[in-house]
C-alpha cells in the first residue's frame, strides 16, 4: 500500500512530527511504500537544518534526513508555509535577500500541488496535525 504522510506540527512543539516519523518507519518496516512526505503548516519547521538540540535528545531534522536518505524518500515542504516561517533554501534566501538559507536536500521546497497529487495517487493519506 502507498502512503502519503502529511506533517502539520513542528518539532518539539507537539507530538505530531515525532509520531509521523515513527509511523513512517513502521510503514516501511511492514513492507509498504511511502509515496511522499509533505510538510505543511508548522510542519515545515522540521526542515530547519539549524535545529541544534542537546546531544542526548532526538534531532528530528536529522531523523527525517536519515530516514529519507536511507529509503530514497521525498521530503517536500510547502513554499508558502515555509517562507512565512523563515524556512528557506539558499535559492529562496538569495531571492528574498536573507543572510542564509536553512534548508538542504533531501528536503525540497515545492508547492501545494504536491499535496494534492499525493492525495490523489497514494492509497492512504495520513495527517499528523496538532
Amino acid at each position: 500500500m502507498k502512503f502519503l504522510i502529511v506533517v502539520q506540527g513542528g518539532p518539539y512543539t507537539s507530538q505530531a512530527s515525532l509520531s509521523a516519523w515513527h509511523f513512517a518507519r513502521a510503514v516501511l518496516t511492514r513492507g509498504h511504500e511511502i509515496y511522499r512526505i509533505f510538510f505543511y503548516h508548522d510542519g515545515v519547521y522540521n526542515a530547519n537544518g539549524l535545529l541544534s538540540p542537546p546531544q542526548d535528545e532526538v534531532n528530528l531534522h536529522e531523523a527525517w534526513r536519515l530516514l529519507a536518505v536511507e529509503n530514497d524518500l521525498e521530503l517536500v515542504i510547502c513554499v508558502a508555509s515555509a517562507l512565512r516561517r523563515g524556512i528557506l533554501d539558499q535559492t529562496e534566501a538569495s531571492r528574498y535577500e536573507k543572510p542564509l538559507g536553512n534548508v538542504e536536500a533531501p528536503f525540497i521546497i515545492s508547492g501545494l500541488g504536491q499535496l494534492i497529487d499525493g492525495t490523489i495517487n497514494a492509497d492512504r493519506t495520513m495527517t499528523f496535525g496538532s
Binding site: 502539520q8 505543511y40 503548516h41 508558502a80 508555509s81 508547492g111 501545494l112 500541488g113 499535496l115 494534492i116
Partner: peptide, 16 residues
Amino acid sequence: LFGQEGLDAILAGSAF
C-alpha cells in the same frame, strides 16, 4: 494558521 493554510490547500486542490 490552520484555517488560512487549509483554505490555500482547498484552492490548490480545486485546480486538480
